[in-house]
């Protein structure tokens, strides 16, 4: 089998295993899971959004994805969220040397990728005609969480929306929606957190809350991929910076490297 087909087949395995069938319990504490992109290519017709991106993101790393509009940051994050298939290459979820998203029985599979991923996207991924509590309850039920009422109340309290529990999301300001979107993404305690311009719409108070939340996730050992083209205080938590340009990795500080130079470049650009 050609290498590209083999990688695609592996990716399909990951997709299949992402569907619920066996264990559906959410781990009490986030498991350490890394993400590997192997020569990932994504084409939309004739447009190549990603051109052979290879990245090994270890469990517990906090990676800042930098780059201008159209660099491929969102496409990369959507692939990691299992929302998009690569045209070529593979995305794997790993626990140390073990690839946990491979066939059950072939490798130790202790958590399913879909349970382990949380995404804050460009849109809020929330229903405007449901209340804040109804939105979180819906997703808590879909993720089969325990003690749903308590979990939702805690999440709303944490994001500062405890007084707006019964308000429809369409009545919220942009910043409030974004805080609720972040709360929704973190509700099931994912261990891989994908953030696509998460600070959009947040005021200073919201940014401070968000940075504190991220710091907690980092200390819990979560793997974070955060895309941004704007400098904000949460970037100081990054342990690694990867700059994308034209669908390729333009610069990578590496797992053991210092991301400050790349992050400083972002500050200079602004």
């Amino acid at each position: 089998m050609p290498a590209s087909k083999k990688l695609s087949a592996t990716w399909c395995e990951a997709r299949r295993n992402a569907l619920p069938a066996l264990a559906t319990q959410t781990p009490a504490t986030p498991a350490s899971i890394g993400v590997s992109f192997h020569n990932v290519e994504k084409r939309f017709g004739s447009l190549a959004a990603l051109r052979g991106v290879s990245l090994e993101i270890r469990a517990g790393e906090f990676v800042a994805l930098l780059g201008p509009n159209g660099a491929g940051k969102t496409t990369l994050l959507r692939m990691a969220a299992l929302l998009m298939n690569p045209t070529r290459g593979a995305v794997l979820f790993t626990n140390g040397p073990a690839v946990i998203s491979q066939r059950v029985g072939a490798q130790a599979l202790f958590v399913r990728p879909k349970h382990a991923i949380g995404l804050v996207g460009h849109s809020t991924l929330l229903y405007d005609e449901l209340t804040a509590a109804e939105n979180l309850t819906l997703f808590a039920r879909l993720y089969a969480l325990d003690k749903i009422a308590d979990t939702v109340a805690t999440a709303l309290d944490d994001c500062g929306l405890a007084t707006r529990v019964g308000s429809l999301v369409r009545t919220f300001s942009r910043g409030m929606r974004q805080r609720l979107a972040i709360a929704r993404a973190l509700l099931h305690r994912p261990s891989v957190i994908l953030l696509d311009e998460p600070a959009a719409g947040l005021d200073r108070h919201g940014l401070a809350w968000f940075s504190a939340r991220l710091a907690r996730l980092k200390s819990d050992g979560c793997t974070v991929l955060m895309s941004t083209h704007a400098r904000n205080e949460s970037l100081d938590l990054a342990t690694r910076a990867v700059a994308l340009a034209g669908g390729r990795v333009d610069n990578d500080s590496g797992s053991a490297g210092d991301p400050r130079a790349l992050l400083a470049a972002l500050r200079t650009e602004q």
């Binding site: 991923i117 995404l119 849109s123 991924l125 879909l142 993720y143 929704r184």
Partner: peptide, 15 residues
């Protein structure tokens, strides 16, 4: 499509 809520459903661990 409004808030890309289908993505949130697709990401949930359901078929």
């Amino acid at each position: 499509q409004n808030n890309e809520t289908l993505d949130a459903l697709r990401m949930a661990p359901i078929s």
